[in-house]
Simulated assay, not measured.
Amino acid sequence: MTADRAPAAPTDAPRPEPVRFFGTSWADRGPGYALRRAAVAAGALAALAAGLLALSLALSAFTGGPLLDVLLAAAVGGCSLMAGLRTWRTLSRGRDALDGWMADDRALAPIMVVGFAGTLAAYAVRSLVEAPGEGVARARHEAALAAHARRRTPRGGRPGARRAPGGRRPRR
């Protein structure tokens, strides 16, 4: 082995988790990563535009007067805001960071369906920053690599010279 060649990486090291639409290319931000992020953002914005068009056609069928129009717009806007905040927090901090009312998936299912616009908008904006969910996956991967490195490094020091609990040396 020559001095200029680095040792090979251990094969038993933890592998990165795949992220939707990106696989494991987020780990090294390999070729096509930026283009894929732009495509994901464009796809989310296209789905958002199509969904908002369908939503406006569905809401135009209601003829209950201006008060009903205001209430429906407020309900859809509020649901979109809550769904967008929940999606942003999930993509940036992980599902473990959800607390309180945001943590209950079954209770939030109707809000997430009505507020799909907020979810798609959060997904599009997050894909402009990084691959959606990349920060959470990167933190998990780095923690797994650090734990793996701790397991593989031998303990140093002289175990026989350690002090017993209480600060006294054991008698021989």
Rank of each mutant, 00 (worst) to 15 (best):
D4E: 14
P7R: 00
P14Y: 00
V19K: 08
F21Y: 13
F22R: 03
T24W: 06
W26C: 12
R29Y: 02
G30E: 14
Y33K: 00
A34D: 15
G43W: 05
L45W: 00
L45M: 09
L45E: 03
A46H: 01
A50R: 00
G51K: 10
G51W: 15
L55D: 14
L55N: 12
L57I: 00
A58L: 05
L59E: 08
F62V: 15
G65E: 13
P66R: 02
A74T: 01
A74P: 00
V76L: 10
V76F: 14
G78S: 03
C79S: 07
L81R: 01
M82K: 11
M82R: 07
A83L: 06
G84A: 12
W88A: 11
R89Q: 10
T90V: 13
T90G: 04
G94A: 11
D96C: 01
D99T: 13
A103M: 05
D105K: 11
A109R: 14
P110F: 06
I111V: 15
G115Y: 04
A117E: 03
A117N: 02
A117Q: 07
T119Q: 06
T119S: 15
A121C: 11
Y123A: 13
A124C: 10
V125S: 11
S127L: 02
E134A: 15
G135T: 13
R138C: 05
R150G: 09
R151Q: 11
R158K: 06
R158Y: 09
R162L: 15
A164T: 09
A164I: 09
A164V: 10
G167I: 07
G167W: 01
R171K: 02
R171A: 07
